[in-house]
Design a binder for these strands. Sequence first.
DNA 1: GTGAAAGCGCTAACAC
DNA 2: GTGTTAGCGCTTTCAC
Lengths: 359, 359
Amino acid sequence: MTRRKQSVTIRDVAQAAKVSPGTVSRAMRGSELVNEETRKHILQVAQTLNYTPNLSAQRLSIGRTLSIKVIIPFFTRPAAAARLNGVVNVLAESNYDLIIHNVSTPEQRRTCLETIPTPSQVDALLIISICPTDEEARRLAEAELPVTLVDAYHEKLTMHHCVRGMDVWGGRQATEYLIQLGHRKIGFIGDRVDTPFNFISSRDRHLGYQQALETAGIKPDAAYYRENDHGRKEARASAKELLTLPNRPTAIFAASDTQAIGVLEAARELELRVPEDVSVIGYDDIEVADIVGLTTMRQQLFKSGEIGIQLLLEKLDHEEVNPVCEVLPPQLTPRHTTAPPQPSNPRCSAVPPDAPNTS
Amino acid sequence: MTRRKQSVTIRDVAQAAKVSPGTVSRAMRGSELVNEETRKHILQVAQTLNYTPNLSAQRLSIGRTLSIKVIIPFFTRPAAAARLNGVVNVLAESNYDLIIHNVSTPEQRRTCLETIPTPSQVDALLIISICPTDEEARRLAEAELPVTLVDAYHEKLTMHHCVRGMDVWGGRQATEYLIQLGHRKIGFIGDRVDTPFNFISSRDRHLGYQQALETAGIKPDAAYYRENDHGRKEARASAKELLTLPNRPTAIFAASDTQAIGVLEAARELELRVPEDVSVIGYDDIEVADIVGLTTMRQQLFKSGEIGIQLLLEKLDHEEVNPVCEVLPPQLTPRHTTAPPQPSNPRCSAVPPDAPNTS
DNA sequence: GTGAAAGCGCTAACAC
DNA sequence: GTGTTAGCGCTTTCAC
């Protein structure tokens, strides 16, 4: 442990400017209680001495860490990255540091939520796309610092802000759209429901899917349901199963765009035309959806991050604010992978989805 | 400024365990100089008291911040995200905090490199994909903390580690591949060279492109060069210009996969077949390249982040290490958007690139 | 092996 | 307005 000292401290500046450390401190932080002349002089001296305040000391002294921790799984996935981008964007204009904790294994997920940070570690906590278990919610409820959930929810956490995406409703919208187009045999491809990650968006979207079917008087067929690890390749495999069924679905709702891409690949591999032979709808509206012309449910990903962090910053400013639950509805975004089902199914050579709608 | 105190401090633990704060500190940090009995007892007490050390105090006391700052432009772009992922992944196993500074405007870029952080702010600095200007390099050369550059370079910064990607070589490889296929009219679409961001990878790849042409005895034609803001739409516009030229190129090398996708879209819009009418090669090998079956130069993005941060951590451990310059060669990854040029150019309906090679 | 005490650099009362 | 001073919570010499 090399315990090195700082080269130039507030005391050095004070000495050089012939004032006291306290005055330097006041001058640096823009306190009103300091003569305009001396302030200028002090800043000048600080400048030439190349002084920068010691953050740790500052933080220790004011009793706040000036940093916010964000927990997010698989932050490189486009949808997660978009959310995180909203956070980063807002935080860039504050003087809070962003401490990012990526979660890519169940183990990481567990340890992350096992011990809630204390105010001596970070000032606030933003949890994105991770649904607390009951036990974790219990601990989160007693957190000593402001917490906000984005794309996550727990009924017991009414004391914290949350930002949600209406996954059930969105799942229903997507499915109803397919039904309106005339489809009755509609497959669903989503994430595994029962994993240590406890992701719930896919499950919720499937719930909406079921609601839509029931409302339309269509009996959900278990054979049309597939869950798998999240990913394009995995979804592709699942889709191949569905599309080679004796009585295959004429449309597939994928719980995410990434998975929908897998479905498109499966269709192409099986020489099924999209949307003539099979319609495909995704969820999120990440860039690749636009690229391949995928019909999808657009989520306000960037905005969810922005709002989440804004709520948190607000809470840091005014101790007493009522918790709100911001809800961001998804929006049906039709492109070129959905159409009414065709009576016949001629087996012909693969044809791509139409060109993307890049207006 | 609400200056709140910590609920339970090291002193509380000491008192409860009937030892001195010093001993608690030693016990917590696993010092050898403490009786095994007392250590256990202390940890036990700390546990029940729910004690967590105050990071700011710890940092101030040991004179290190235990955090590393990474500066990265547009971290949500797939290539940048992959690099960052490598960093995050390695750092997750250390006890350093990652402080991420995204750069999305020239202004942010400027301020970020204007004042080099001091050891009192962060312990080390990782700069990704930002090429310092001469002036910035001068300042970086005098940095008081370890610095590593990833996907960036400056000749004067030989005192710092760097990780590079052989962009010139890669650009030449890509172009030579097209030449080998028989192309002689080869377009180039890249980023703007002269921007405040000072990105150089596109420029370097273009350099390699020129070298390849010259070696093959092909005179570079300025009409076949387009630079534009980075982005799919922008590249699409540029590609449309090239592909509607009276004597249009039969192949296009795009400085990134994102831009290559734009080229594909332009081709489709103009009803040019890929690869029959026009070959397209990209750079990076991000996921979408696999999805659309794009031929590209694969970069070791994730690895570049891993190595960059590892070099930095090493430097933090052993003060005196010789700076190294790790070089990661890209790899030609042929897929389905490149082929020998065809003698005739029949104008027929659009056909997609072949199915991706998703083995 | 453990306690006492002197900082680490800064801020915020409190005097004047 | 400005100086003085007492912490913030922790680590680490230095005694014992």
